Simulated scan of single mutants.
Amino acid sequence: MPKAQETVLEIDLNALKHNFEHLKSKLKDNTKVLAVVKAFAYGSDACKIAKYLETLDVDYFAVAYTNEGVALRQAGVTKPILVLHPIAINFKTLIAYCLEPNLYSSKILETFIEVATQENQTNYPVHIKFNTGLNRLGFDERDIDFIANTLKETSGIKVKSLFSHLAASEDLNEREFTLNQINTFKQYSEKLINLMGYAPIRHMCNTSGILNYPEAHFDMVRTGIGLYGFGNSEKESKNLKPIATLKTIISQIHTIEKGESVGYNRAFKSKSLLKTATLPIGHADGISRIYGKGKGFVTINGKKAPIVGNVCMDMIMVNITNIECEEGDEVIVFGPEHNTAESLAESASTISYELITSISQRVKRILLK
């Protein structure tokens, strides 16, 4: 791979393919795969990721918000796209771009039927979400008769899928809770299917559900973090390949005398003679202030360099006292071979999801095939 000459996020499509095929190998042949590409495909590049996954014959995509789905359509993505958290004001736009809403409450269901009718839609595909314990979005058992009766009174929409979301599928200590969620979803979905008179696609498993609960694969599974190389456990992560490497360079090297300070608010005061490197990346690029004051680190020429003082908006300073390096040298912020996004996130008591989805859109993306 070429050495970085500026701050870049390299995206390895071969790793993406490996992850997709590994996860698919856990499924029965007729089980569909929905790829979650919300939040710029977990901080990478949603349009390019989705276009590539279409060549691998993925069945479905999911985004969080309508504008994310619009961007995919404008990029030429043709597969069905589920909008997980649609807002009523965007319903006309959603229909205009052939996106499929998650209808999670009586108000959202009734409002979407009203808009679909105004837009002269017939059997417009929608998805019904049940709340089985995560307690974010979704109908519960008391709503099933209402859903069925409402659907019978309209020809504007038709249910494409019934789904729910596991709350703790990665935590085997919560296995009893998860099995209860699965059984609850079975009961709710079977009751509604009987009332509707037809059987939509059913899906419940996220990445950890795919790996830990094969009995809950149903007709389709959803994978987000697993596609991007993280398995939510050390064992499973070994079977996956992180697709993203965040690189930057050394802009300038300083010698810091004993007693001198570095950065804003003099957050670091040197107790001895040392050397620091200034890097062109900061909290506006997604490296939050929580990584400052020695919690976070980068890798330079194979050695760890801890962050010194506070993270600035556009720069960080790192301790290179015991590292042979020069201005212009490449720096690995995180990647699959050195300090991973998981290890960097853990250093600041957070998770890889938060770190990778925070990488700013001003950071240049480079696709590797």
Rank of each mutant, 00 (worst) to 15 (best):
S208W: 06
S208E: 05
G209C: 05
G209T: 10
I210T: 00
N212L: 02
N212R: 02
P214D: 07
H217T: 03
F218G: 00
D219I: 05
D219N: 11
M220V: 12
V221P: 02
T223R: 04
Y228P: 03
Y228S: 01
G229T: 00
G229F: 00
G229M: 07
F230I: 00
G231E: 00
G231K: 01
G231I: 05
N232S: 05
S233A: 03
E234A: 14
S237D: 09
K238V: 06
K241M: 08
A244V: 10
T245N: 02
T245W: 01
L246K: 04
K247L: 13
T248A: 08
I249V: 15
S251E: 15
S251H: 10
S251K: 03
H254A: 12
H254C: 13
H254M: 14
E257D: 13
E257S: 06
E257W: 03
K258V: 15
K258D: 14
K258C: 12
E260C: 07
E260F: 10
E260I: 05
E260P: 02
S261M: 10
S261K: 08
S261E: 06
S261W: 07
S261N: 11
S261F: 11
V262I: 11
G263M: 10
G263E: 07
Y264P: 00
N265M: 06
N265Q: 14
N265H: 11
A267P: 14
A267M: 11
F268G: 09
F268V: 04
F268H: 11
K269N: 12
K269E: 15
K269W: 09
K269C: 14
S270C: 12
S270A: 15
K271V: 11
S272A: 14
S272W: 07
L273A: 05
K275Q: 14
T276H: 13
L279E: 12
L279I: 13
P280T: 14
P280W: 09
I281D: 05
I281Y: 01
I281E: 01
I281S: 04
A284L: 08
A284S: 09
G286F: 02
G286Y: 06
I287H: 08
R289E: 07
Y291N: 10
G292N: 02
G294N: 13
G294E: 09
K295R: 15
K295G: 14
K295D: 09
G296I: 00
F297L: 05
V298W: 08
T299K: 05
T299Q: 09
I300V: 13
N301R: 08
N301D: 02
N301K: 06
K303G: 05
K303N: 02
K304D: 14
K304V: 03
I307A: 03
I307T: 07
I307S: 09
V308L: 03
G309E: 08
V311F: 13
V311L: 12
C312K: 08
M313T: 03
M313S: 11
D314Y: 11
M315G: 04
M317I: 02
V318L: 08
V318T: 04
N319D: 14
N319V: 01
I320C: 00
T321I: 06
N322P: 02
I323A: 04
I323P: 06
E324D: 15
G328A: 07
G328P: 01
G328C: 07
D329P: 01
V333N: 07
V333A: 03
V333R: 10
G335Q: 03
E337V: 13
H338E: 08
H338S: 03
